[in-house]
Design a protein around this nucleic acid. Structure first.
Length: 151
DNA sequence: TAGGCCATCTGGTCCT
DNA sequence: AGGACCAGATGGCCTA
């Protein structure tokens, strides 16, 4: 119990030193640099992009496209994709289901992680976003580490 | 209404 | 061959 009280004091100290505006802008810079790192493969992504399809109106159309795919033989990307290995519908559905579960468990873990941050981290009572949760957690751990090292 | 966040679908790639 | 992971695309919801 004393440990818990100590931790509350620590987090209060950390938060007292916290410059929100500065951190927010710093995180923004980091985010920009992170996002700029992920330049995807250009050709494949163009060919596999739903926007390439003549319908180009979202998931349903694209799903329909995947079923009527072989009838559009004049489409260059379609032709190229025909030569690639195509997952069976059954396997694709299973993969989608697994991916859904995987992303849900990831979201659940992030919700859980949120509970380990002091409530003061969420300004204006709004829950932290995923990216905020991750970045504030890193910052929180670093601050705690500093305090331990200088204790 | 624009922009941010999120869930979902999908194809590609790597690993077992 | 199939599962795990990743990144891009898309649409819905919410807020300023």
């Amino acid at each position: 119990m004393d440990c818990l009280n100590d931790m509350e004091v620590v987090s209060a100290k950390i938060l007292a030193e916290w410059d929100w505006k500065k951190e927010e802008s710093a995180f923004g810079d980091q985010q920009d640099s992170l996002e700029s790192n992920s330049l995807g493969s250009s050709f494949d992504s163009i060919c596999s992009s739903p926007e390439v399809s003549s319908t180009s109106s979202g998931h349903q159309d694209y799903q329909d496209l995947s079923f009527s795919f072989t009838s559009r033989s004049n489409d260059l990307c379609a032709t190229q994709r025909q030569t690639k290995h195509k997952m069976s519908t059954k396997r694709r559905m299973k993969a989608s289901e697994r991916e859904k579960m995987r992303m849900r468990s990831l979201a659940e873990a992030l919700h859980e992680l949120r509970d380990y941050l002091p409530p003061d981290y969420s300004k204006s009572g709004q829950p932290l976003t995923k990216i905020q949760t991750l970045k504030y957690t890193i910052e929180y751990i670093n601050q705690l580490e500093d305090l331990l090292n200088h204790a």
